[in-house]
């Protein structure tokens, strides 16, 4: 069986390289019975396109970020609530691990098999304008990932300007002025080359971004039972390799941004406090809507 998997991470990144090694090892250990074919760099489209293609059966899986995971299982988004972990990514990752069985159960209910959660990293705002306070962010055209309810709710709550776009269009839209600001983990900022179009980074991680390697149940059923364990084990091994790699790539990326002369902006104490208030408001709007009260409770009890 050949499993076709769409990935946004571009070819040549450490992430892509680890995935290639994963595919190779799986092919070898299953005597070429299970082949995984990755389509890197969004060549199969943005994540929603990949998800649609899985649903009509053209593709079999995807490496998705939280936004698209949330389209399948909204509970995952509690991890990405703004102003929850700040710089503490270790704590965030620990909670993801603790909640993994809970999430996987819901993925299974929605016809997906999860081969593992990725740490993508802390999410930063990048901007062409000097957005060093919430007030200065008013009127700046901020990208929001098309269909991302969490981010669009957050931006609307703050009364900021958001422009929904597919991820592959962000770079060109930054240079044509369709948007002036965007958000991503540092490794994403570098590998998508947004660093060439922005001048400022807000030095305050707003959220912790997770990803996962999902296969459709239909595709997973085609993998012979005797191979499933092998696939799961090899996947788990490379998921931790990717996570370690991503941690390093993120800190390297931050250093690279600094050395390129991109200015790191600090928010005032008051603005950070207002951020906490914002978090409550966003939760109020999304609880029972995007994610369940149960998921939120599990998160809070672990904090």
């Amino acid at each position: 069986v050949t499993l076709k998997v769409g990935v946004l991470a571009p070819e040549g990144t450490n992430w892509a390289n680890s995935l290639k090694k994963m595919a190779k090892e799986i092919r070898e250990k299953t005597n070429k019975k299970v082949k995984i074919k990755f389509y890197f760099g969004g060549s199969q489209g943005d994540e929603p396109d990949v998800l649609r293609k899985i649903r009509v059966g053209q593709l079999h899986g995807g490496i998705f970020t939280g936004k698209t995971l949330g389209d399948i299982n909204g509970d995952v988004r509690v991890i990405e609530l703004p102003f929850t972990f700040y710089h503490d990514r270790k704590k965030a990752l620990g909670i993801v691990k603790k909640m993994e069985p809970f999430f996987n159960e819901k993925f299974a209910k929605n016809e997906f098999k999860n081969l593992g959660f990725f740490e993508i990293g802390n999410v930063y705002f990048v901007s062409q304008e000097k957005t060093d306070s919430l007030k200065n962010m008013m009127g700046v055209k901020i990208w929001s990932w098309e269909g991302d309810k969490l981010v669009s709710t957050m931006i609307e709550t703050m009364k900021f300007v958001s422009v929904p776009l597919p991820l592959p269009d962000v770079l060109s839209s930054l240079s044509t002025g369709i948007i002036q600001a965007a958000y991503a983990p540092p490794l994403g900022i570098i590998s998508l080359q947004w660093n060439t179009k922005v001048k400022y980074v807000i030095d305050l991680p707003i959220s912790f971004s997770v990803g996962a390697f999902l296969l459709s149940d239909k595709a997973w059923a085609k993998v012979k039972p005797e191979h499933r364990k092998t696939v799961e084990e090899i996947a788990a091994k490379y998921v931790s390799e990717v996570n370690a790699g991503n941690e390093k790539d993120n800190s390297d990326a931050l250093a690279a941004l600094k050395s390129q002369g991109i200015e790191f902006l600090k928010f005032s104490k008051e603005d950070i406090e207002r951020g906490k208030g914002l978090r409550k408001e966003v939760i109020g709007k999304l609880k029972g809507n995007l994610f369940s009260a149960e998921a939120l409770k599990k998160l809070e009890s672990n904090l």
Partner: peptide, 12 residues
Amino acid sequence: AVEIYRLASAPT
């Protein structure tokens, strides 16, 4: 058809 629908999200 999935691919055709992508036209509906092209920004320019």
